[in-house]
């Protein structure tokens, strides 16, 4: 049976979806991912959908489910690389993926997860981090 590979990268899991998902494949992915989160104790899940040209409400629900389920197991989910046409369509459809984090690409998604985990690996050169919120 066809499966989408899930890669483990340090504390994170990475899935790159490169085929048009039909329902069974999407449900298998949901299953596999959640099992992997529980087995590896991963702290974050990155789902790269840059090669996906269509996201309908079913697929949107799967993404939302993965995020909610992971959160219960203390892992954050970031959907990365959504195509502009897909984003415009989803908004028109009425689906804004509440509760799912988004990032432009895998690299930025990773950064986002690191910040969320309070892991300051990326902040080496940002010593003068002096948040100035006067303007808020």
């Amino acid at each position: 049976m066809e499966r989408i590979p899930v890669l483990k990268m340090g504390p994170f899991l990475l899935v790159t979806i490169q085929v048009d998902l039909y329902d069974r494949l999407a449900l298998t992915l949901e299953n596999d991912l959640i099992n992997m989160v529980s087995q590896t104790g991963a702290r974050g899940v990155l789902i790269d959908i840059s090669a996906v040209s269509i996201v309908d409400s079913f697929m949107g629900r799967i993404l939302g489910n993965i995020a909610s389920m992971s959160r219960i197991m203390d892992a954050e989910t970031v959907v990365v690389g959504m195509q502009p046409a897909v984003a415009i369509t989803l908004v028109e459809l009425g689906l804004t993926l509440q509760g799912v984090h988004t990032a432009l690409n895998v690299e930025k998604g990773m950064e986002l997860l690191n910040t969320k985990l309070g892991d300051n690996l990326e902040l080496d050169d940002e010593e003068e981090e002096d948040q100035d919120d006067r303007n808020d």
Binding site: G81, E92, T96, L97, L104, N105, K108, G109
Partner: peptide, 12 residues
């Protein structure tokens, strides 16, 4: 609001 939502979906 739509434009803002779409931008957020992209991760910006």
């Amino acid at each position: 609001i739509k434009t803002v939502s779409a931008t957020r979906l992209m991760g910006a």
